[in-house]
Every structure is written in structure tokens, then in C-alpha cells.
Design a protein around this nucleic acid. Structure first.
Lengths: 157, 157
DNA sequence: GTTGATGCAAACGATTTGCAACTGC
DNA sequence: GCAGTTGCAAATCGTTTGCATCAAC
């Protein structure tokens, strides 16, 4: 509809995307590709609406519902995670290296961090027989330095 | 409005509640007390709507908005946690002993489990200087045994 | 009596859905 | 050409809010 699809000069990470879609019997649409690309580049756990805004320049006719539908599809395919935040808006991230999340109780900011000690931890015995484990994740709640500073020094210093 | 408040024969955990409210300058209303009591007894991370239904017998005039408002207040006071689930409905739990959550990707069920190994783990160095830590929590995603069984043996056996 | 809390109804906002037109395969 | 996908608009549903009344202190 906008530009022709040049499947042959896909960079490696998009070839991987192509294969996943093909294996799942999903069509490789222009919209899906661009949404995935945008999510891959995003470092800030964007919401569906944020992604939609960012894609507006490249795909002016892209609808917000398609972004929602596509992100849900990605989640099902294991291409994206839906973050559990305390906001009403869900936020997404493409899968990259193993990391965890710090959530600021004040501003709602999500900060990624790595935690090798946690990643290496043996699963708790209490979970024996619970079923299959897909993913383990640590979430740390607190107040970020910026919010702390803002409260202690409302204006300056 | 319904029954008189007998502040003097409160069980210990409700006296604690009374003190927290008093310290925060909040009125000890009948509704707040009953919502807290119900949340304390609940073992299943009820949603605001579920709590409202359960309280209907005791407080027929209780409105759903009050449940929402009250749970938000409890969260602010540190009397309850809002769970981050993948459902649209938020779910709450009163604070009890330290535990973590297993979330089934299929049925959305939340299962509590203890994980002493995690609780004893040192915080990751990556978080140095991030701010103040309020709470750490582990979330494990997977498929519960019931959902596994249902998919392998759709009908019987 | 004063101040904050409640109940009601209406608003809000994120997300989902029905459907007809369209496009990748 | 067919099945799956999109865009549009409308619906859905959890949650929040304005406001007048009411209860706790």
C-alpha cells in the first residue's frame, strides 16, 4: 500500500521476524513489520498509543487498533512482553537480553536492570509440580532518585 | 449507619488497622473497616468488583466506587498491594507474610509461593544509586498444571 | 460544627470487536 | 481467489470524578 516489500534485503533481526511469522502462518504485512521494527528500537517500554504516534510519520494511515492487535499477536508469538505496570496503560518491550524492572512508585517510570544473581538462582521448592515455567522476573518497587530529589527540594538546590 | 462501632472489642489485627488510620488522619468508617476485614480474609487476590460482591450481604448499600477509593487509600497507606496481572482488572491483597506470585499464562490464575532464597538475595549492583527500594518481588510466568492437563487431554483421562 | 467520606450518576480512557474493503500468499 | 488483516466506528468495561448528602471526630 505504501512501499513495496523488499524481503531480500532484510537485516538479520528482521529475517528472524519473517521466519517466526511464516512458521506461525501469519502474513508478513507492512504494518506488522514496521511495528516490530519500532518496538525493537524503542528503549522505553512504549505503550500502544506511543508506538502509534511514533509510526505516524512512516505509516500515516496506520490505525491504533492495528497496533493493539499486532502487539497482542507479538505477545502470543513470544516476540514481545506486556509489562505489568501500575498504570492503566499497558507497556510493551521487544525481547532482548535478560533483564528486570525497577518501578518508581511516584512517577511510574520503568528502569531496566540486570541481576545475574537472580538469573542464576534455583527455582523455589514451593513451585514443584505447579506446571511449566516460561519466564521468571524480578520486580523492584521504590522511589527513583529524581522523585526523591524533587520531594526533598521542591524548587531548587 | 448499619451497626454501631464497637472500637473496644476489636481483634488485634483490626486494632492495628485502627492505629494506621488514626496516624494518617483518616476516619474509621464502617465501610473501610469491612473492606479491610474482607481483604484480610481473602486468599485469592480479589478484584475491587469481587470484594464488592462479597460485601454485599453485610453492607448492601456499599458502592463500588467506595471500594475502589478505599483500596487506593489502603495502597497508599501500605495496607494493601495492587497486583500487576495481565488482566484488565487489577487485583489486591492485604499484606501478610512475604511471598511471590506465579501467573498462569492461560487461565490468569495467581498462585502465591514463598522463596526464601530470593528473599535473602543481595540487591543487584546495577541498582546502586537508583533511589529508595520499597519492595522486591519475584514473578514467575508459566502454565499451571490444570491448564497443562486440559490441553493434553481435552476431554477425559 | 467541621472535615472528610460516601453514594450516585456521569465521564473517562484504554482496549476490544463487528464488519466491509483490501492485500499477501 | 481465498484467508487473513486492516481501518473505521461503535461498543465495552474497569476505573475515576463532581457533587450533594452524611457520618466520624
Amino acid at each position: 500500500m505504501t512501499a513495496p516489500m523488499d524481503n531480500d534485503d532484510f537485516p538479520p533481526h528482521l529475517r528472524h521476524f519473517e521466519q517466526i511469522c511464516k512458521a506461525a502462518g501469519l502474513k508478513l504485512t507492512h504494518q506488522r513489520l514496521e511495528i516490530y521494527r519500532e518496538l525493537l528500537e524503542a528503549r522505553d517500554h512504549p505503550s500502544a498509543e506511543t508506538l502509534h504516534k511514533r509510526l505516524d510519520a512512516r505509516l500515516p494511515t496506520l490505525s491504533l487498533d492495528t497496533v493493539y492487535r499486532t502487539l497482542t499477536t507479538f505477545e502470543r508469538l513470544g516476540l514481545a512482553h506486556r509489562l505489568e505496570t501500575r498504570e492503566s496503560q499497558a507497556r510493551f518491550e521487544a525481547l532482548s537480553q535478560r533483564h528486570h524492572h525497577f518501578l518508581c512508585d511516584r512517577c511510574g517510570q520503568v528502569v531496566d536492570f540486570t541481576w545475574p544473581g537472580f538469573d542464576m538462582l534455583a527455582l523455589p521448592p514451593a513451585l514443584t509440580g505447579i506446571g511449566t515455567i516460561h519466564r521468571t522476573s524480578a520486580v523492584i518497587y521504590g522511589q527513583c532518585a529524581a522523585c526523591l530529589a524533587r520531594e526533598q527540594n521542591p524548587t531548587t538546590r
